[in-house]
Nucleic acid binder design. Structure first.
Lengths: 251, 251
DNA sequence: CGCCAGGTTGACACTTTTCAAGCCGCGTGG
DNA sequence: CCACGCGGCTTGAAAAGTGTCAACCTGGCG
């Protein structure tokens, strides 16, 4: 905290482009928090964003129970959100990639509700919540977009509830692959070839399945000519076929 | 829309207490949106809340796809939120009771994402989102509390994901009963005796189970002396026993 | 009075988990 | 540089949990 502040001040004049977040120059600005702001508003926003923070693979950005004071925009990398249960059982509640916002779950109770764990070396922009509150009173577009981000998180989660509540194993996996594909495409990556950052177990946890079930579904899709899988590498061969599995019932 | 506005103006001087929402006098103000505001702020808030709207059992407050313009505070009654899937399958994503806020899912896309259906005759206060935006720029406490409400919805949903992802049938039902009990208690009702407003099928849909499974679990809890069930009436006989089922594994 | 939605219960089928064995690939240390 | 170890992945067989189908019950309402 104190150290971050120090870093921020030091960086203001020196290596601004290097250490300071600089939304105005960020190539994620269209999909990240500043989406839709004017150039002038972007400059205002920049005053609020703290230095970037690097998180190594396997480390956590925050942990459940820690006091909440900032939200985070993912600058690069990949995270999982994990909720741990009283008895030790846990569940992955989401995967997040560049441009997405982490930490929204902390606002309600003033402390984080889940762990945010980096699945690869990552970098985040840290946004003190109190400054976000202030600034979103001044910049209407920021207020509106922040509300949208929260609302979309609610909608996203109800989509996951649908996955977990009504779909069967193969449908869930197909939905998962299509979702990854679509989000990667929105970031300019290939929607048909990608590396999974998470293990089978993490996918299973997210989808409410055991890792063996995930593995079997991958193998079946492979044999059915829908995808090619080799460890964490996935190539979608027949995307329409995948969509049929996802929309199921026509089998 | 125009009609609601008309009603609101008419009611301002006439039957204010009857038709106008009047947060300042509402006995739900401690758990509803205005929680934590000062008396003066409450009066400001009242200028924003439209007339109450009555929803008959079985009718919907809004439906998925309809344009979003207001959020709603439940004044009395009981709702389910339901998402319908392309192919017709649907899922209940939540149950809401007095003092809770409906419609937050609409902010992100400008249209509602689910149906909100009354499970008994209900009354809601309608809060135009544009006015909420304005006012939450002026009243810091309102801004903060609105953010908390959204954040808690995110946390609530990740709790449901946990239910759906890692718990088995009987644990889910126990969790459901304990959750109802706790929310009713927060509203001054008996936590140990209540009437379920929803059918077994709706409970099942919410919990990702078939209605027969719900029914069997109820019967089992009854036989085990944990609860008494008779149709929609439930009495919790052994709440610690229920909690053990919920925390499971010790069976 | 009779109908019908909603609920209960039983028998059986099916999906997914559990348990177990073995493989593969990658990083580490000898 | 190779061997080793280990986490991660795959696959099979059996077990468990939940869903499906069907019959029947119950209570409320027209």
């Amino acid at each position: 905290m104190a150290r971050a502040e120090l870093l921020r001040q030091q960086s203001t004049h020196l290596a601004l482009a290097e250490l300071k977040a600089a939304c105005a120059n960020c190539n994620l600005r269209e999909i990240c928090l500043p989406a839709g702001l004017t150039t002038a508003e972007l400059d205002q926003l920049d005053t609020m964003v703290d230095v970037r923070r690097k998180i190594k693979r396997g480390e956590s950005l925050y942990r459940a129970g820690e006091p909440f004071d900032s939200i985070y925009a993912i600058r690069s990398g990949f995270f999982k959100a994990r909720v741990t249960y009283e008895d030790g059982r846990d569940q992955v509640t989401g995967f997040s990639m560049a441009g997405e916002i982490l930490g929204l779950d902390g606002i309600g109770q003033g402390k984080h509700n889940c762990d945010a764990v980096a699945l690869e070396d990552s970098e985040v922009c840290s946004i003190p919540y109190s400054r976000l509150e202030e600034l979103s009173r001044e910049i209407n577009g920021l207020q509106r977009h922040f509300h949208k981000v929260m609302s979309r998180e609610i909608v996203r989660e109800s989509g996951v509830m649908m996955l977990l509540g009504v779909m069967r194993a193969e449908e869930r996996i197909a939905a998962f692959l299509l979702n990854m594909s679509q989000r990667l495409a929105a970031r300019g990556y290939s929607p048909l070839e990608f590396h999974l950052r998470m293990t089978r177990e993490e996918i299973g946890s997210y989808l409410g399945l055991k890792l063996e079930t995930v593995s079997r579904a991958f193998s079946k899709f492979h044999n059915d000519g829908l995808i090619q899988v080799e460890q964490k590498f996935v190539r979608i061969v027949d995307i329409d076929g995948l969509k049929e599995v996802y929309a199921h019932h026509v089998s």
